[in-house]
Design a protein around this nucleic acid. Structure first.
Lengths: 344, 344
DNA sequence: ATCGGCAATGTGTCCGTTCACATTCGCGAA
DNA sequence: TTCGCGAATGTGAACGGACACATTGCCGAT
């Protein structure tokens, strides 16, 4: 039945034009159209021109599914996120999306409901069902990586914020250095009794920041307070701060992220004390709000967006065999504001 | 050539098992396997059992591309985000991912580089290339919707945070009500000179919050200060706060989001004043940090996650013809903390 | 014993591409 | 003129599923 021949009230069901439609209209074979599409060699410029015109004219768009079926490539990159909606991962993700789009790739994301093996396997399964070509993991928990070790992936994988996890392509700002910068800053101000409120034990970054803290404390030969394991939330910082202030055997706190630092601020104020007069506080991440905390928070900045961009560059490099990758490590930067002052 | 017959050093290229492999192994036709997969009726339980066993055994996973090719359904939902990584959208997105995964759908996201027509069309084009079945738009700017009006989409669309945009399925917390609650709270505390720092003019929510503010001010017959158009950032709140404090012709500020409120806090402190003693401040959103601001911020909470979940429910309803949708509107809630006090 | 009818299962075709392998065309060299 | 040859283009398979339409087997009614 020819297109116009449909019976009167029957919904015409306009099928999207396919490659053969284009070919017919352009008076060439579908293979030629395919060549134009994949800009292969050996196409007479005039032919290419004509085909392109028709494509534009009928609004032809290659069917990804058909293409994926035969090439078994989906031009899709999966991103696995941990359940939390933190500033860092979110910022990286946005950069990942942009970079991927630029390269003509799609991003599909899945967030983990937990960090156990089941959950990781499930999330991965979900992504794999889309036949993703590469994977970015922003779920920097030890257990997630343990799960990965058992999973034996066959596609390129890049992990973010997972300093030093061997055997996997890993990209991150140097957390240990960042923690050292923060700690040294406090030491330079004369503090000797410094507390560290860490992230959850399971988190790789938390562990790295803790290590950096301890390295610097040891290097300066200062008394070691056992780090307190937190959960990244301001809520935790607040509660632990209140408890800690019962016995004030410290003059400074290095919180493993800005939110916990904020909670500590709150606790200090609740106790009728002042930052930095009575207690100095340093955070980590430099979220946009940090400079407007009261007092403005001294913290460690890391370039999350750059991290995201590089992860895609790395992945694409592996996927398409490029080589000019930027392997410089991304350095954290101490941002000195007003929340840490000299000891008095 | 039989599988084992490959020449010694030739990479064996293990093809993933397909539906016919499974059928052969199970001793049935591929159609039967297909029926098991799509749990169609008329399969003898013992047969289904056997097929499922084989599927599990060989790790068969239906090829999405092939399925999409023939059904022209991708089981993928697209999400279009505005460029910013705000708390609300991010939270909604995470809930969207979860809800979609639960229903067996994939999410692919694209963030807009700007809010002009070109950009929206480009982002959409990118998503459409994946043949998404439905679209969630979290880019509540007027221009984005103007762009959509011209675009004549053929797939179900749900927009978030875009109160009252007609003709499109729109889901949102009642922003006007939220703003009225916040404003009324200040009025009830005795404030008469209330300033509103709004979001960018282009944002639908900003406009709604502003409307709610003005409604309440007018209802109480109070003097109207022209709203100040901000950009959602703490930075802006800070700068405008400093300027405003030059002439203190107000006693309270209603900021259109918590970040700007934080900036205002900062400015007030810089001026040697106190919140809420000298100026009362109310925010909007109730980001997790808000309760640990100093002082803890009185603000309006909205359930972003619920919003995300519902958007998927709505979309799936349209896609799969379900009907039992929850049409109750999501109400915002005033969270009274310490940043707004009685006038003195 | 035959047949209708339904449950369970099988066969052929198509979806829109790409790939490997033809085929055509034109032009210069023999 | 004929041949060779490379550039430009065409043809016939796949790819892995789903759908429409057979076909088979079995049971009870006739």
């Amino acid at each position: 039945m020819k297109p116009g021949t449909t019976r009167a009230m029957e919904p015409t069901k306009v099928r999207a034009p396919n490659i053969r439609d284009v070919a017919r209209l352009a008076g060439v074979s579908y293979q030629t159209v395919s060549r134009v599409l994949n800009n292969a060699a050996s196409i007479r410029p005039s032919t290419r021109q004509r085909v392109l015109e028709i494509i534009d004219q009928v609004g032809y768009r290659p069917n990804q599914a058909a293409r994926a079926l035969v090439t078994s490539k989906s031009r899709t990159i999966g991103v696995l996120l941990s359940q939390t909606a933190h500033y860092g991962p979110t910022t990286s993700l946005r950069a990942i999306e942009d970079a991927a789009r630029e390269a003509g790739y799609l991003i599909t994301t899945t967030s983990l409901s937990a960090s156990d093996y089941e959950s990781v396997a499930g999330g991965l399964e979900h992504l794999m069902s889309q036949a993703i070509e590469g994977l970015v993991v922003i779920a920097p928990q030890v257990r997630v990586f343990d799960a990965f070790k058992e999973l034996a992936l066959t596609i390129p994988l890049v992990t973010l914020d997972s300093t030093g996890t061997d055997a996997l392509r890993s990209l991150s700002v140097d957390q240990i250095l960042g923690a050292r910068l923060a700690t040294r800053h406090l030491i330079d101000l004369g503090h000797q009794e410094i507390l560290h409120i860490s992230g959850p034990q399971d988190w790789i970054e938390a562990e790295a920041r803790m290590r950096g803290f301890l390295q610097e404390i040891n290097a300066a030969d200062l008394p070691t307070h056992p780090p307190i394991l937190g959960d990244w939330t301001a809520e935790f910082g607040y509660h632990v701060g209140r408890e800690l202030l019962g016995s004030r055997d410290f003059t400074a706190v290095f919180a493993a992220n800005d939110q916990m630092a904020l909670g500590v601020f709150h606790a200090i104020r609740d106790a009728g004390l002042d930052v930095p007069r009575d207690v100095s506080v340093v955070g980590f991440d430099d979220i946009p709000e940090a400079r407007h905390f009261w007092p403005p928070l001294t913290t460690v900045r890391q370039d999350f967006a750059e991290l995201g961009r590089r992860s895609i560059a790395l992945l694409l490099g592996e996927l398409e065999g490029e080589t000019d990758l930027n392997h410089d490590s991304i350095l954290p930067e101490l941002v000195v504001r007003d929340s840490a002052g000299p000891i008095r």
